[in-house]
């Protein structure tokens, strides 16, 4: 085990974390819009949101990586960096899944809460921001943390089409030089596990607590 290579794995892990956080930020923003669109009173908006989800959930992330990489130059933005392309693709991908998760959480807020808000004469925006969303957030936290694990794992795909230098990419490069796949892919796997497993456990723990609280 060469220390330079091990260091390079940690370097890759840092890039994995950066891409994951950017994805969470932008994917979350778009995802919130998708979730609200799914329960909008306007039928065309609902249709657009559900079509968006259907399409994104029916296409592999690798294909979206291609769109993120080659799309911007076609739209006239010139070439984008690997990180930007991966962020675009990952955000679009995650927004469809987060949107669907959060729609479920919004609809899980008890019906009388919606009705009471309406009876109090709150506007639609007030009802969402003051009554529904604060309650939905509590329900949404466990599955949202759980989805973080999916995002981190999925960033590994960014090593393929766009060639972003994250953990899997670096592990592959090292393997090409050393031909010790068990050592370096094993180490990379352990690093992924050390990041993902605590998040999985946290999500499960919070879910149990929520179930007890609402019983």
């Amino acid at each position: 085990m060469n220390p330079v290579f091990v260091l390079s794995l940690f370097d890759g892990l840092l890039n994995t974390v950066i891409l994951s956080l950017l994805t969470y930020l932008f994917g979350g923003l778009v995802g919130l819009a998708v979730a609200l669109g799914r329960i909008s009173p306007s039928k065309p908006v609902r249709l657009v949101a559900s079509t968006y989800i259907q399409i994104i959930q029916g296409i592999p992330l690798l294909v979206l990586m291609g769109f993120g990489f080659f799309g911007p130059s076609i739209l006239g933005f010139g070439n984008v960096s690997a990180l930007a392309a991966a962020t675009i693709a990952m955000s679009i991908y995650s927004s469809a899944y987060l949107g669907e998760i959060w729609r479920g959480c919004l609809q899980a807020v008890a019906k009388p809460q919606w009705e009471a808000a309406e009876c109090l004469g709150l506007s639609r925006v007030q009802r969402m921001t003051r009554i529904i969303i604060p309650q939905a957030v509590r329900i949404a936290i466990p599955p949202t943390v759980g989805f973080m694990v999916q995002i981190i794992k999925n960033t590994s795909v960014a090593s393929l089409v766009v060639g972003y230098g994250e953990l899997t990419y670096n592990a592959k490069i090292i393997n090409n030089a050393t031909f010790q796949p068990f050592v370096y892919f094993g180490l990379a796997g352990i690093l992924y596990f050390l990041v993902c497993y605590p998040l999985s456990e946290l999500s499960r723990m919070m879910e149990r607590r929520l179930n007890v609280a609402s019983r």
Binding site: S156, V157, L160, Q180, F185, A188, Y192, F193, C196
Partner: peptide, 23 residues
Amino acid sequence: VEVIRNTPLLIQAYFLIFGLASA
């Protein structure tokens, strides 16, 4: 179950296929 669910498929595929080939 925990090991597989908390590591990426791509790493698993590399580990298995390149690993077995190196062996």
